[in-house]
């Protein structure tokens, strides 16, 4: 971690490896400054890691990164201890949060962090790239909450890209808050909802047996992507109701 007038730079790294004894080892588990990592009790052959925010942030000018690699046959679940709150900072410029995930053949990653809250006056660019091998499996949930209770949100640009063997399966960017292109809160995009999220599930078997598209209430849908994956997209009035609909949808996918 380095701290300067430009903000904090921090990169956390995780590598998960099949330990050859029916479990998953973590040869690399490196926190960095505000990004602390803890191994928690796993289940079966799956290792569990908790991302613990040791400082608040990201603040304006901060650049955070997380790299997680799941090697062939390993199984990893990553969660976070609390919501991440994007806040305005002393340093100039936007904050960045880059997540790079790689999942090898026969490996599985469940990436299930808590919400990202865009606090008033903050300016954050989030990019999440998941690169998967042909037989990799992924469950990835991301949730954005626009503003703390009763607060106008900050600017949040969040891009999610999922690739299988280098082929892009999903590329979606949400741009919202003050300064975003017009109409972001209007009837085509968020319609006044303050919580928005998606969950991607990639499984090789979806190639032959894709999920059927279905609507879940007013603000959510489960759809098959153009490849071996399903996507849940949801908007909700608040974080609690968003989590409920996403988890219900994930459960229905088995």
């Amino acid at each position: 971690m380095t701290a300067a007038a430009t903000g904090v730079r921090a990169t956390a790294r995780i590598v998960a490896r099949d330990d050859g004894r029916g479990g998953t080892s973590l040869p690399v588990l490196e926190g960095d400054g505000p990004l602390a990592l803890r191994r928690t009790r796993g289940s079966g052959d799956e290792a569990h890691v908790m991302l613990v925010g040791a400082m608040s942030g990201p603040l304006g000018g901060d650049h955070f990164a997380v790299r997680a690699g799941v090697e062939a046959g390993a199984r990893l679940r990553v969660g976070s201890a609390a919501a991440t709150i994007a806040l305005p900072g002393q340093a100039k410029g936007e904050a960045r949060y880059d997540v790079r995930l790689t999942v090898a053949d026969g490996a599985e990653l469940r990436w299930l962090p808590e919400q990202l809250i865009s606090a008033g006056g903050s300016d954050l660019r989030v990019t999440t790239h998941a690169d998967l091998a042909a037989t990799a499996r992924l469950v990835l949930r991301e949730e954005q909450v626009l503003g703390r209770v009763g607060e106008e949100p900050g600017r949040l640009v969040s891009r999610l890209v999922v690739r299988i063997e280098g082929r892009t399966l999903l590329d979606q960017e949400l741009d919202c808050g003050p300064g975003a292109p017009g109409g972001w809160d209007g009837p085509a995009v968020l319609g006044g909802h303050r919580a928005v999220g998606q969950a991607v599930v990639v499984r090789p078997e979806f190639e032959d047996r894709p999920v059927s598209a279905r609507v879940l209430g007013e603000g959510a849908a489960v759809v098959p992507l153009a490849g071996p994956a399903a996507l849940v997209t949801a908007v909700a009035p608040d974080a609690l109701r968003l989590r409920r609909v996403l988890d219900e949808a994930l459960k229905s996918l088995g």
Binding site: E173, P187, L190, G191, V215
Partner: peptide, 22 residues
């Protein structure tokens, strides 16, 4: 390459298109 193209999404357009199709 095509990654340079914009990927701007509209969650309500995506969700309500599925409802409408049904």
């Amino acid at each position: 390459g095509v990654d340079a193209l914009p990927a701007a999404s509209a969650p309500l357009l995506e969700i309500s298109a599925e409802a409408h199709a049904a």
